[in-house]
Amino acid sequence: MIQGFLDDFQLCFVKNGRYDYLLSGLGITLEVALSAIVLGLAIGFLVAVVRSTHDKYGKFPFLNALARIYLTVIRGTPMVVQLLITYYIIRRSIDSKVLIAILAFGINSGAYQAEIIRAGIASIDAGQMEAGRALGLSYWRTMLRIILPQAVRNVLPALGNEFIVLMKDTSIVGYIALIDLAKGGDIIRSQTYSVYLPYLTVAAIYLVLVMTFTWLLSKLERRLRKTGADVVRNDL
């Protein structure tokens, strides 16, 4: 049995340098996931602030309407379909599949992150904005320096969850023939007819990725907790 496993291992990962499918696939997975997280954060902050500002002060009616359409469409359609549409729309102008995937996943994740961050902004006591404004800070400066740092701290677990989901969701980039970790394992399976070892290995690598990420996030959370209250309202 051990011999069988070793033969399988040899066939799947060593022969013809097949381990490279997993290695370069892992690189693609990380590149797409991390870039999409950053893009999603940028979109998320923007949309969340527009939505919050509109809900509170009635400003930016046009941007707010746009943001709502964006949220509805992105959250109402499957990721795979969004990826394919993005691919066929822009593949003529952008020929990097990695970039296309980053765009598709970033735009998708931005919608979810926007709602998470908006919840975080709503969780901050109105007195915080008032205190900032009373000191002479502009609305945007108060938002940036007072509200958002606290908002993000409050929703970090939810954001972390979204990052993890996004990281695993990138395993569908095979649909646009991008060879990521999952697709790499699939190729090995198709070349070797060995099923379990490639897929289980791929699963294990994802698991390690997510665990590492979770660990990093909890470290960040602890650090933020240390520098301040875990209560939202500082008067309680």
């Binding site: 006591d125 007195g127 915080q128 008032e130 205190a131 900032g132 009373a134 007072i146 740092p149 606290q150 701290r153 933020l224 520098t227 301040g228 209250a229 209560v231 939202v232 309202r233 500082n234 008067d235």
Partner: peptide, 11 residues
């Protein structure tokens, strides 16, 4: 301005 609930910045 000084508020009833202080409104210090907790972070």
């Amino acid at each position: 301005m000084v508020f009833q609930h202080f409104n210090l910045f907790p972070h």
